[in-house]
Design a protein around this nucleic acid. Structure first.
Lengths: 353, 353
DNA sequence: AATATTTGTTCAAACGTTTGCGCAAAGCAC
DNA sequence: GTGCTTTGCGCAAACGTTTGAACAAATATT
């Protein structure tokens, strides 16, 4: 009899998970005792704690987070929704998120909205079902209403937006100071002696793009330069080709610009290609500055000046904000964290050196 | 009395989750009935199914995956471990994984090993605790033993490697045919008239780099070109600077190469910079081909020829393999899926056009 | 010596589902 | 009206963990 039981146990151990009850049986303890021993409860003697932990190690026991989560109402899961995951920015933000989250004992579940609000809604459902304890989200481009996020808030689940927010909503967010980014990039171009600075703007329903544009405008005004609306191209600056097209457009103006500040790096890279094809010197004839400090900005010739977005810090900050919100469980006022961007000056804008 | 109760319920509904029992109470049904109704069980009448679903919608009921997972022993979670998440390759693979997984009803948990085996071990523990139903992993560079993966296999949890495998291990894997990638890239350079083709190789304990090198060697042999060991630089080709250093090294050889095939794009981009600084024409004097089709390969001047790795397909394939393994629960033979790479020919290697 | 306190442990309920089994009621054939 | 199947649903156990309360034994307090 006895040997048979052991054989069965031995076979089980191979595939089935060893549970807290198994430990309890083998030690002649109660399950609760084992649980407390593993959780280092003060009421358990050192002796039994060690006995328990020794056996746990030996049998390669792994606590079942599902069960614990169910009981405690804490899944130790953190949901993240991004428009897409390829592309340096979001990838690095996620890197920061994963780092900070795992240090706090959280696992992160990644969802992509593919810039579609319908997907985004689905993502929310998925994450709620998975019982995440918080959601970090950068809204898709096609998101114009807030309805699906209200579900999250009504559940009392901390919701933190990062990088992209819906304008006119009172939410917790960690943002880049896009205004300052646009401002310092433009001011730098001005200081390099540029007089007619064009701008590739993004879709204006997204705050990040309006702010960058505003920074651009204010930098012009501050230095007494005229604002010429025809020098501003509204494109979707996420692709290289949009930048090529935009550049061709401004080159046809009677007064061609002597510098471009673009809301994205991809577009400015496209612009660089077009300028090269037209035999125009960068930065002597046209200086360029982009936004995001994408990896490739260091690989073009000349290398591209760009505004760095502190992506990894943004991820960390978002997690910290989430943790704070979770602590202050009665929902306090909404928090905003604003990160200051840094201008990385490279050859594409350096005229006097 | 009665009103007070309702107030409490009303307040609860705001924050607390509505459960299957709440539905049961309000409908005068049993929990099991509600459960079956929601799962579209054949034994429940259409009428009650509709009643249940209507109320579920109205109260915004969300099933608790933790509870269901605990009961069914299925978490609907899929674990992924990558060395790092920034950088195009892994980001795009993850994109593919998330896409395929979510279609199969799985959520994916991302972990980074940061190329450190210690982290990797931790990641495994985390994922096992989270009760993932499978693990997709690309091993870190510092992983030389298989011990921590055996735990996973002993539990009967499907384990799928992608892109990087430990050599000499019998595992399920989806790989790129790196050999062919190296071969076609080198052959292409030969066809362009190059005679002394150098190679930037990677750490040779990683299969991907030995295979690429072998493809390179065999292409040379096939076309009767001598193999000169001094033209092969063993560096860690993940950084731009490594490529710069390697290029400087081969430029000092008595016979400088007239082409370079690099195991990575970053290194070949570094090489391009150095060649430019030395005033050497690309591709006329030195032709270049890299590996990975990183985004920036289309942004350099000249644009870089590169071997595309079908990253997104790799992610999808890994998920499919996982699903197959889960189906065929008694562990069958190990499966290998080999994806064929494609050579994207760009200006950096095109001599006759 | 009786009572109070501490220490170490067990009991049992709970978390929200799923699921095998049982049990009525209704329909059908006899 | 008796037996048989079908239809529709409820009971209760189970998944692995946590946790408030109870409890016994040992120690300290009076």
């Amino acid at each position: 009899m006895r040997t048979i039981t052991i054989q069965i146990l031995a076979k089980r151990r191979e595939t089935k998970q060893v549970s807290i009850t198994d430990l309890a049986k083998q030690l002649g303890l109660s399950v609760s005792g084992v649980s407390r021993a593993l959780n280092n409860d003060s009421r358990i003697s050192q002796a039994t704690k060690q006995r328990v932990q020794a056996l746990a190690l030996q049998l390669n026991y792994q606590p079942n987070h599902l069960a614990a989560g169910l009981r405690k109402g804490k899944s130790k899961l953190l949901g993240v929704i991004v428009p897409y995951i390829d592309g340096r920015f979001f990838a690095v933000v996620i890197k920061g998120i994963e780092l900070a989250a795992s240090q706090a004992g959280f696992s992160v579940i990644i969802c992509q909205s593919n810039e579609e609000v319908a997907h985004e809604r689905q993502n929310i459902e998925t994450l709620l079902r998975a019982q995440v304890e918080g959601i970090l989200v950068s809204v898709s481009r096609t998101t114009h209403d807030f309805a699906h996020f209200e579900k999250v808030q009504n559940r009392g689940i901390p919701l933190v937006f990062f990088d992209r927010v819906l304008p006119g909503t009172e939410v917790n967010a960690v943002l880049l100071d896009d205004y300052t980014g646009g401002f310092i990039a433009t001011e730098h171009l001005i200081e390099q002696g540029c007089q007619r600075i064009g701008h590739f703007a993004g879709p204006q329903h997204l705050g990040i793009y309006t702010h960058r544009r505003q920074g651009y405008l204010d930098a012009l005004r501050k230095h007494g330069l005229p604002v010429a609306e025809e020098q501003i191209v509204y494109c979707d600056p996420i692709t290289l080709d949009a930048g090529r097209e935009a550049m061709r457009q401004v080159l046809q103006l009677p007064e061609r610009p002597d510098a471009i500040f673009s809301s994205s790096d991809a577009a400015i890279a496209g612009a660089l290609q077009v300028l090269e094809e037209h035999g125009l010197q960068v930065p002597q004839e046209v200086a360029l500055a982009g936004f995001s400090n994408e990896m490739f900005t260091s690989l073009t010739t000349p290398r591209l000046t760009s505004v760095d977005q502190c992506c990894e810090q943004m991820g960390e900050a978002a997690v910290r904000l989430f943790l704070d919100l979770q602590q202050a469980s009665p929902p306090t006022a909404t928090h905003h964290i604003v990160l200051q961007p840094e201008l990385l000056i490279r050859a594409s804008s350096l005229r006097n050196s």
